[in-house]
Computed example of a mutant assay.
Amino acid sequence: MHYEGTIIRPPSEANSILLQVTVGCSRNKCTFCGTYRGERFKIKKDDIIMQDIAFAARYCRRQRRLFLCDGDALIIPQKRLLAILQAIGEQLPWVTRVGAYGNAKSIDMKSAEELAQLRANGLGILYMGLESGDDTTLKAINKGATAEQMIAMGRKAKAAGIKLSVTVILGIAGRERSREHAEATGKVLSAMDPDYVGALSLMLVPNTPLYEDYRAGRFPLIGPEEMLAELRTLFAHTHLSKGLFHANHASNYLPIRARLPKDREAVLGLIDQALAGKVRLRSEWQRGL
Score class of each variant (00 low, 15 high):
residue 207 N to L: 00
residue 284 E to C: 05
residue 287 R to L: 02
residue 169 I to Y: 05
residue 173 A to H: 08
residue 92 L to H: 07
residue 259 R to C: 12
residue 214 Y to H: 13
residue 12 S to K: 11
residue 288 G to Y: 10
residue 111 S to I: 01
residue 103 N to F: 09
residue 78 Q to S: 15
residue 92 L to E: 00
residue 15 N to F: 08
residue 49 I to F: 04
residue 159 A to M: 12
residue 277 G to D: 13
residue 235 F to N: 02
residue 152 A to C: 10
residue 100 A to L: 02
residue 274 A to R: 05
residue 282 R to I: 12
residue 123 L to V: 03
residue 184 A to R: 01
residue 147 A to E: 00
residue 193 D to F: 06
residue 169 I to D: 02
residue 115 L to I: 04
residue 122 G to C: 01
residue 123 L to F: 03
residue 38 G to P: 03
residue 38 G to T: 03
residue 41 F to Q: 13
residue 240 L to Y: 02
residue 101 Y to E: 04
residue 43 I to C: 14
residue 200 L to T: 13
residue 81 L to T: 01
residue 86 Q to F: 00
residue 170 L to R: 12
residue 162 I to H: 05
residue 22 T to C: 00
residue 266 A to D: 15
residue 258 A to V: 11
residue 91 Q to T: 14
residue 43 I to Q: 07
residue 48 I to V: 15
residue 254 L to T: 10
residue 105 K to Q: 12
residue 200 L to V: 14
residue 56 A to R: 05
residue 62 R to T: 14
residue 70 D to V: 06
residue 13 E to D: 14
residue 20 Q to H: 07
residue 105 K to N: 05
residue 68 L to I: 01
residue 112 A to P: 08
residue 153 M to C: 08
residue 117 Q to W: 08
residue 231 L to R: 14
residue 182 A to R: 06
residue 205 V to S: 08
residue 23 V to E: 15
